[in-house]
């Protein structure tokens, strides 16, 4: 283990990003990914360990115009219990419901889930379905800089993303879904509780007059990054949601998913589940 030279717990965003601009900082939020990864040697701490949970404004869920903004340090428990999320984006609450255990949910943050960039990240999946963007903040030339990146463009490979080391993820923002938005999330693993997803599927879109539009489909653990399944989206977009389109979507899911064999499951089983879940989620959306 590398020695941590200093520990920071800034109250303000400026302080935090200034420290990050100055050098080798490891951001620590809930620590539920960081701790096991540094313990096992997969990751090393930087010289400065920075706890971001005391930064004002970094957690909480709020409406901002026609958008919903979730602070990066907001925990999975907060998402799970939030009335606004329950009303406006139940797909996110559903993912929170099936996330780890109470102890982990109380610590795990949404920002941590995204920055960890695991293809199995359970909060990422519904956020892709909601077409969320992330806000990144940094300090340059004596000022706070922010940029917004669509979540779909955030991931570049296994555990890799476009966020620079000096950038802090501050918030996740998505447009409040219209009233005809329908969506659902399904994940699975070999035991019901406390499970890392073997596979997850999230699907959402606007369903009116029996026609499915603006369809977005996300899949977890079937590719090097969390995946937008464009083939499935195409199979559903602008078509009536019925047995035929569901069949086409299942066939497309088979093509979109490119999983590997690992200790958690074989590629065969992951493909199999992706098809089962695609059908199941669409049937759920249809109310079958």
């Amino acid at each position: 283990m590398q020695e941590i030279k200093s520990y920071l717990a800034p109250r303000s965003l400026d302080e935090a990003v200034k420290a990050m601009a100055a050098g080798d900082v490891t951001v620590f939020c809930g620590g539920t990914d960081l701790t096991p990864q540094t313990d096992s040697g997969a990751k090393r701490y930087g010289a400065t360990l920075m706890n971001i949970r005391r930064i004002e404004g970094l957690s909480g869920i709020a409406e901002a115009g026609d958008s919903i903004r979730i602070g990066a340090a907001t925990t999975v428990t907060e998402v799970r219990r939030d009335p606004l999320i329950a009303r406006a984006a139940p797909i996110l609450a559903e993912a929170a419901e099936h996330f780890a255990s109470d102890q982990i949910r109380n610590a795990a943050s949404l920002g941590g889930n995204i920055c960890n960039a695991s293809p199995a990240g359970d909060m990422i999946n519904p956020l892709l379905v909601l077409d969320a963007a992330v806000e990144l903040a940094s300090w340059a030339d004596g000022a706070l800089r922010t940029r917004s990146v669509p979540l779909e463009n955030f991931f570049t490979g296994p555990r890799r993303h476009v966020k620079r080391p000096d950038e802090l993820l501050t918030a996740i923002v998505f447009r409040k879904p219209a009233t005809d938005f329908v969506g659902w999330f399904r994940k699975s693993g070999p035991r019901p509780a406390l499970e890392i997803s073997t596979v997850s599927v999230g699907i959402g879109g606007n369903l009116s007059d029996g026609v499915f539009r603006n369809v977005r489909v996300a899949m977890g653990s079937v590719a090097p990054t969390p995946l937008r399944a464009h083939g499935v989206e195409a199979a559903l977009e602008g078509r009536p949601l019925d047995a035929d389109s569901i069949r086409a979507a299942v066939a497309a899911a088979d093509a979109d998913a490119t999983p590997i064999d690992d200790v958690r499951a074989s590629a065969w089983y992951r493909k199999h589940l992706v098809k089962v879940f695609t059908e199941e989620v669409l049937n759920h959306v249809l109310g079958n």
Binding site: S101, P190, R191, A193
Partner: peptide, 11 residues
């Protein structure tokens, strides 16, 4: 314990 699946209380 992440990958060696002991059953947990809810099961």
């Amino acid at each position: 314990f992440r990958d060696y699946k002991l059953l947990t209380a809810p099961e």
